[in-house]
Amino acid sequence: MIAKKVLLVGNFGVGKTSLIRRFVLSEFSEDYISTIGVRVSSKIVKFNKEEIKLLIWDVAGTNDDEKVPKAYFLGASAAMYVFDVSREETYLNLKNKVEVVKELSGLKNITVVGNKKDLLNSDEINHILKTISISVDLITSAKEDENVEDAFTILAKQTLK
């Protein structure tokens, strides 16, 4: 088995912790508890007959003017940038935000995930996707457990590249 460090980053309140809780513990809570600093969870996944222990770093959400310590990004094998499809400020300048994560982590590819799909209808989501200047890998709902497993499978696959 191999262990791989993966990061979940994005603005505060986009659902990073909820995605991790849904994936690791199969739980969801409406209660919002802000992550301070970083919280690490782990889960073993199987991909292409390979067992990978994902060490999932839940990096505290930020406002645009806050800087995340570079040390959090060191040694990461993959990263997921999460935004909230119902909050425009979390996906404005998405391309720039993802570029910053690439720069800090040294990763070439970042998985981009829009969360909180359950708050909008498909027409609204499609409209938002047309306004975003980079490709979005998945739209998820931690609450309804939609595409969460798929998002982490993409992340696990990224660790092997």
Score class of each variant (00 low, 15 high):
residue 1 M to R: 09
residue 1 M to G: 14
residue 2 I to D: 07
residue 4 K to N: 13
residue 4 K to Y: 02
residue 5 K to E: 06
residue 10 G to R: 06
residue 11 N to T: 08
residue 12 F to L: 10
residue 14 V to G: 06
residue 15 G to W: 01
residue 15 G to F: 00
residue 15 G to C: 04
residue 16 K to W: 12
residue 18 S to V: 01
residue 19 L to N: 07
residue 20 I to N: 09
residue 22 R to I: 11
residue 22 R to N: 14
residue 25 L to W: 03
residue 26 S to R: 15
residue 26 S to M: 03
residue 28 F to G: 10
residue 30 E to I: 11
residue 33 I to D: 09
residue 34 S to L: 10
residue 42 S to F: 06
residue 43 K to A: 13
residue 46 K to T: 07
residue 47 F to L: 03
residue 50 E to C: 11
residue 52 I to Q: 04
residue 52 I to W: 08
residue 54 L to M: 11
residue 60 A to M: 11
residue 60 A to P: 04
residue 62 T to V: 10
residue 62 T to K: 08
residue 65 D to W: 12
residue 66 E to L: 06
residue 67 K to V: 13
residue 68 V to A: 08
residue 68 V to P: 00
residue 69 P to Q: 06
residue 73 F to Q: 05
residue 74 L to G: 01
residue 76 A to P: 01
residue 76 A to K: 04
residue 77 S to D: 05
residue 78 A to P: 05
residue 80 M to D: 09
residue 81 Y to V: 04
residue 84 D to N: 08
residue 85 V to L: 15
residue 86 S to G: 10
residue 89 E to H: 12
residue 89 E to K: 15
residue 91 Y to A: 01
residue 93 N to H: 15
residue 93 N to Q: 15
residue 93 N to D: 13
residue 96 N to E: 15
residue 97 K to R: 15
residue 98 V to P: 07
residue 98 V to Q: 06
residue 99 E to Q: 15
residue 100 V to N: 14
residue 102 K to R: 13
residue 103 E to Q: 14
residue 105 S to Y: 03
residue 107 L to R: 12
residue 107 L to T: 03
residue 107 L to E: 03
residue 108 K to Q: 13
residue 109 N to H: 15
residue 111 T to R: 08
residue 112 V to T: 11
residue 114 G to T: 13
residue 120 L to C: 12
residue 122 S to I: 11
residue 126 N to Y: 01
residue 126 N to C: 03
residue 126 N to D: 15
residue 127 H to D: 11
residue 128 I to N: 05
residue 128 I to V: 07
residue 134 I to E: 04
residue 135 S to L: 08
residue 135 S to F: 07
residue 138 L to D: 02
residue 140 T to L: 08
residue 143 K to H: 08
residue 143 K to T: 05
residue 145 D to K: 12
residue 145 D to R: 12
residue 146 E to H: 13
residue 147 N to K: 15
residue 147 N to L: 07
residue 148 V to W: 04
residue 149 E to Y: 15
residue 152 F to E: 02
residue 152 F to K: 09
residue 153 T to Q: 14
residue 153 T to H: 12
residue 154 I to S: 00
residue 154 I to D: 03
residue 156 A to H: 01
residue 157 K to E: 05
residue 157 K to Y: 03
residue 160 L to N: 05
